[in-house]
């Protein structure tokens, strides 16, 4: 039994220690915003935040958490979809199939936590998620737009 702090709530989950955080979120807590894409921390569609830092949850064992960390998923990024990144994403109509977008948005929100005014080089280095539909050109525009917005 592990105690976790997810989106501001303390929850207890009965999962084997080596269960990746992704599957705890999805299958124990019903938070299906973070997606399964590769299981090896390559594609980024499972990205969530731990203490504000973007983490690929598909390879992060739940047993490695102490219970003190603040875990944030796309469902907890904002109450009403009003996070600057979400606003920018709606304004530029970025998602196509949308499956990778929760992870993309969390990666970008994490980037902006660390680097509020990122350059293209910062973006290239820190946002490495895969999108097969091909939203990448708009994603870059979305990042530059998001950094001008206030929550």
């Amino acid at each position: 039994m592990a105690e976790l702090k997810v989106n501001g709530q303390t929850v207890n989950v009965d999962a084997e220690e080596n269960t990746p955080l992704l599957w705890v979120l999805r299958e124990h807590l019903g938070l299906t915003g973070a997606k399964y894409g590769c299981g090896i921390a390559q594609c980024g569609t499972c990205t969530i935040h731990i203490d504000g830092q973007p983490v690929r949850s598909c390879t992060y064992p739940v047993g490695a958490l102490s219970g003190e960390e603040d875990i944030t998923t796309i469902e907890g990024l904002s109450e009403d979809g009003s996070h600057p990144v979400q606003q920018a994403w709606v304004e530029l109509d970025i998602p196509q199939c949308g499956y990778c977008q929760p992870g993309m948005i969390m990666a970008v929100a994490g980037l902006l936590n660390n680097t509020p005014d990122p350059t293209d080089e910062d973006i290239d280095a820190q946002v490495t998620n895969i999108c097969r539909c091909g939203t990448l050109a708009r994603v870059r525009k979305g990042i530059h737009l998001a950094k001008t917005k206030k929550a």
């Binding site: 938070l31 915003g33 979809g81 979400q86 709606v90 970025i94 977008q101």
Partner: peptide, 27 residues
Amino acid sequence: VKRLDTADKVTGAQKYGADLQLDGMLN
């Protein structure tokens, strides 16, 4: 015009087949 299917795709609310949960469902 804007797409009709964007809102839920930026909040994680959009359910895909992989997210489906039915009563009594096994995996």
